[in-house]
Design a binder for these strands. Structure first.
Lengths: 337, 337
DNA sequence: TCAGCCCATCGAAGCGCTTCGATGCTCCGG
DNA sequence: CCGGAGCATCGAAGCGCTTCGATGGGCTGA
């Protein structure tokens, strides 16, 4: 193994000088710096992570806690995770993957053993058992999602209320007067996932504001369930001409079901989806959608974490503004018959 | 921070004794061990990971390299990753998440800096640029998937050839005489992903062995593409009565398309799928399928890695035998008209 | 011309742990 | 009753790095 002493010898300086070249914590003359950097390259030196962590009490590793069973759409989860890794690397940090099946104990362990010096928690529930542990550990942390009580925590999420509102506004602007929200399965709401509730709230608030009739439905992502839901919805509320879908896996079967009902999209009914951008490529017509900015969520989470690690203040709540991309699934409602 | 010296003082022993209690590398009397363990619990001691890594030159961390763009079905990827984390924890190791966008350089970095002492690489391609790096680093490593040249490497994967063969056998046993394989998009094959090729090979080999007429088709997972593919397939080969589908996202639209063609499953055509077990719950009829054992793949990979870390010999290739679960999508072919 | 300062660099201590040889027991056989 | 074997434990060195105070040389300004 190549050590800092080897580099120092090779460059004709002391080990501490090499260390200062690496960290930039003291001024080093350009000549010396270049010589040292050349030696580092020549020898292929990489500082020993453990030694560095021991001496500096900074591991330069952040823990990423993934849920074992997830409410979120899995591909999004992974996209966010990847974005987090990439962003963390940009700040010279690595990412340690933790699952919830080791329980909250795992958080304790990695924190107390100084394996990591910060934590990102994904897919936070309203009453998440990890939240009190985070408070207690006193490590810098960022949550993706909002728990019921977010006092003193740093949370990041898409502004789902605004996203739903944006969908409603889009439909209202087109002239629709009665709309429905097709949300995630009932279980997700019951388990207390914040984003689902915020979508519903935003939907209802916007509908009220715009004077629209509004209906909310949960929906399992199974083909049959979708079909039934849609059929019932139009039977009970024939006046509905606009659908907001916040349920990724249900979108393809939903469009399929509409086709089956001889309901043309967007001629007879308009559909706006909230979900990952890739979904747009998988269905026809290309849906008008508010996309979930996985990359930005990951990046923002890391930036906030780095702020906290560097002693800067971080805002308590970061709501990422939604972005609606027009597609071919929305149009003005059919003329009154 | 609580150190080993604090524990030693509390228990009235020397630090080395505490260390030996923890590692079990020397005999310690039962009385002393209990006293030390009590002190550890009382003080809430967790060994400092960096210090431990420095002194023992063992980080007890394995790197998990995920691809950025993936050929595999994303939920499976994540399932395997989670299984790896869980299994690694069972062997007192943690998992560091690496993406490929840092490139092969990231592997070098974590290895040379002793951040990790072993590597698991997922979604290996036939000519994977990471493979030569693994050889060069000399770290214990396990690949999930097979590269073109796997000499000297330890690889784990589902036995896709056997899986495809099992599907063919199932159809042949039911009396089918002409079958087709609906594989992944052409791009996946071209990029040289081993599992796709092995499926094709296994399919053709088994069909030949059983004297079946066999056709192979690639298919994009878009609704329209699936529909076209199916239509063309039956137009060109009306004799086909059995389908093997190795393309997760295409399965739901495929069943849908068959329904559209007034082709009843399994009355007119039988369908066997290769994919994750959860898929079965999302479509009707419940498909007969060979499931991809994500949990087992992750676990086996870790076990092999631990063997190598502990100086034991690990087999070069581990092919996990497939498992066919009968469903309601296969039946004998319709009587000849 | 020299005190005083700052810049660049060095040396050494110490981070918390593991590990190896040394040490003091106890217990056995002769 | 004593030498030697073996068990349980201790002490100290050292892993590779960071960091703090110290040092020395080149300037500046009076």
């Amino acid at each position: 193994m190549v050590t800092i002493a080897d580099v120092a010898r090779h460059a004709g300086v002391s080990p501490s000088t090499v260390s200062y070249v690496l960290s930039g914590k003291r001024a080093i003359s350009a000549a010396t710096r270049e010589r040292v950097e050349a030696s580092i390259k020549a020898l292929g030196y990489h500082p020993h992570a453990g030694a560095r962590a021991l001496a500096s009490s900074r591991a330069n590793v952040v823990a990423l806690v993934l849920p074992l069973r997830t409410d979120m759409h899995v591909p999004i989860l992974l996209q966010i995770a990847m974005a987090i890794v990439t962003a963390a690397r940009g700040h010279d940090h690595d990412v340690l993957l933790l699952t919830n099946d080791e329980g909250v104990e795992g958080l304790h362990r990695v924190a107390r053993s100084a394996l990591v010096d910060a934590v990102i928690v994904m897919d936070v529930e309203l009453h998440d058992p990890r939240v009190p542990v985070l408070r207690e550990l006193g490590l810098p942390s960022v949550l993706i999602g909002f728990p019921a009580d977010s006092a003193g925590l740093t949370c990041v999420d898409l502004d789902f209320a605004a996203a739903a509102g944006m969908c409603v506004d889009h439909l209202a602007d087109l002239g629709h007067t009665a709309v429905a929200l097709i949300g995630p399965p009932a279980g997700v709401l019951e388990r207390g996932t914040g984003f689902a509730r915020r979508t519903v709230a935003g939907f209802e608030e916007a509908a009220a504001r715009r004077g629209l009739r509004a209906v909310v439905r949960s929906c399992e992502p199974l083909h049959e369930a979708v079909q039934t839901t849609v059929k019932e919805l139009f039977a009970e509320h024939p006046e509905i001409t606009g659908l907001v879908v916040h349920n990724e896996p249900a979108l393809p079967p939903l469009l399929q079901a509409l086709r089956g009902l001889e309901t043309a999209v967007p001629r007879d009914v308009s559909v706006v989806a909230v979900g990952p951008q890739e979904l747009a490529a998988q269905v026809t017509p290309t849906p008008t959608m508010v996309s979930i900015p996985a990359e930005e969520m990951g990046r923002r989470a890391v930036e906030l974490l780095m702020d906290k690690l560097n002693g800067r203040e971080a805002p308590n709540a970061t709501l990422i503004p939604p972005n609606l991309t027009p597609g071919h699934s929305t149009a003005p409602p059919p003329a009154r018959s």
